[in-house]
Nucleic acid binder design. Structure first.
Length: 188
DNA sequence: CAATAGATCATCT
DNA sequence: GATGATCTATTGC
């Protein structure tokens, strides 16, 4: 995708990213679950507290990576949405592993079906080795990219409340590939 | 099965 | 000093 393809409201981009391919080096997966975070009015969004050292990339141009460290253990990957100055973003929550599975197994130290390799925000960053080193990276080219299929896969999008937050917890901003086996936690 | 505890630290008050 | 866009292991029915 081109940088300008990311330049749209987070709720739109979140749905557009479903069915796209996230690649880092030789590992790649298809995005099957996303969440939109809106900005100043969205108390669940990091950007709602204003521009800080951590969140500054959210206020920049779309199509860059916002990676943050959470719970002292995990990294989470977001795609910056919206125009420069509008801090919307999309959290990537789950992938269907496509290539580099052996590397993913090694990184995750996981012994189970491939479905469990990247079905969660903290799991997919571990599987693809995405860290704060990738903070601010552009996603249209380079080592870490988001690409669309030549022909977009057909599937149904389901909408649910976001997971793991306490504020604005009832806003319907989580989007999933309906009934896909690689969704985080229980399906819907 | 569901519920809970513990790991563990950057960021912001 | 408290908190958090999580995950895994363990405990309790």
């Amino acid at each position: 995708m081109q940088l300008c393809d990311f330049e749209r409201p987070a709720t739109e981009l979140a749905q557009q990213l479903l069915g796209c391919v996230l690649r880092h080096g030789t590992t790649a997966g298809m995005i099957v679950e996303t969440e939109a975070y809106l900005g100043l009015n969205d108390l669940a969004a990091h950007a709602s507290k204003g521009k800080t050292e951590r969140t500054k990339v959210l206020f920049g141009p779309a199509g860059h990576a916002y990676v943050y460290f959470i719970y002292g253990m995990y990294e989470c990957l977001n795609v910056v949405a919206d125009r420069e100055g509008s801090p919307g973003c999309v959290l990537i929550r789950a992938l269907e592993p496509l290539s580099g599975l052996d590397l993913m197994y090694e990184r995750r130290k996981w012994h189970g079906p491939p479905v469990g390799l990247a079905n969660g925000p903290g799991k997919l960053t571990q599987a693809l080795a995405i860290t704060r080193k990738e903070y601010g990276a552009r996603l249209d080219e380079g080592d870490l990219t988001v690409r669309e299929w030549r022909e977009k896969p057909q599937f149904e999008i389901a909408t649910t409340p976001r997971i793991g937050i306490t504020q604005c917890a009832d806003w319907p901003l989580r989007f999933v590939w309906a009934n896909h086996p690689c969704l985080s936690r229980r399906n819907s």
